[in-house]
């Protein structure tokens, strides 16, 4: 294994998980040299084209250009524009977790298509990730899933816990987990609550898990 950054801090069971790294990396081999040579040719040509046709005038030109950076500068703070395939959707004053969902509803774009539109730019990454988590999982549509509100669900679980009804809270969590993996439930919760709240939910997840 020749990873520049050695896998670490992963399993919680073993500090390294070197066994998994070794097994998964075996037999994959090095990158295909013929393709790499072709890629370098293309990259070198691109560099030459940059010099001849569009020389950047300053570092600022590079760091700030890109259509998403331009869009960001034009937008009001509370607005989000999702642009893809000629579709423009404006979202106003919505909770961060939900901003990308109406982008789907209105534009008909999939989360991945929206993500693709913002690919690599960091503009929508968090919002799209949140939407992915807040959107009922694929294939689980229907009334029960369609009206899920993660924030409300989380509040309800905490409220139930505060009322001392542990079993009811666990059942609410189990219902939630029917739509999302545990890891995603925790990730979603991390966006909506503080460390104490997250720790309480984590504890509940572990209790539910221990009964499986």
């Amino acid at each position: 294994m020749n990873n520049p950054e050695k896998p670490m801090e992963t399993s919680g069971q073993s500090s390294e998980a070197d066994d998994i790294t070794a097994v998964l990396s075996h037999g994959v081999g090095a990158a295909p040299a013929d393709i790499d040579a072709h890629i370098r040719e293309l990259a070198h040509q691109a560099a030459a084209d940059s010099v001849s046709s569009n020389p950047p005038s300053s570092d600022e030109t590079i760091s700030s250009h890109g259509r998403w950076a331009a869009w960001q500068r034009r937008l009001p703070v509370a607005a989000l524009l999702v642009v893809s395939a000629g579709v423009v959707t404006q979202l106003w004053q919505r909770p961060a977790e939900h901003r990308a969902i109406p982008a789907q509803d209105v534009s008909g774009l999939s989360v991945n298509a929206i993500n693709e539109a913002a690919q690599g730019q960091g503009v929508l990454t968090e919002r799209v990730a949140a939407a992915r988590l807040a959107t009922p999982a694929e294939g689980k549509g229907g009334a029960a899933s369609a009206d899920l509100d993660p924030s409300a669900r989380l509040s309800q679980i905490f409220q139930t816990l505060e009322q001392g009804d542990q079993l009811d809270a666990e059942q609410q969590l189990i219902d939630w987990q029917k739509d999302f993996p545990s890891a995603d439930v925790l990730e979603l919760a991390a966006r909506m609550t503080d460390a104490n709240g997250l720790a309480r939910l984590q504890s509940l997840v572990e209790k539910v898990g221990s009964r499986d």
Binding site: S11, Q13, I20, E126, A129, S182, A183, E187, R191
Partner: peptide, 23 residues
């Protein structure tokens, strides 16, 4: 996290489950 937009703790959790399942 920078590639997927996921939080560090979520990634850690996925790795924990994933490694355990693989083992």
């Amino acid at each position: 996290g920078s590639a997927t937009g996921s939080k560090r703790e979520a990634i850690r959790s996925r790795l924990r489950y994933g490694v355990n399942r693989l083992r």
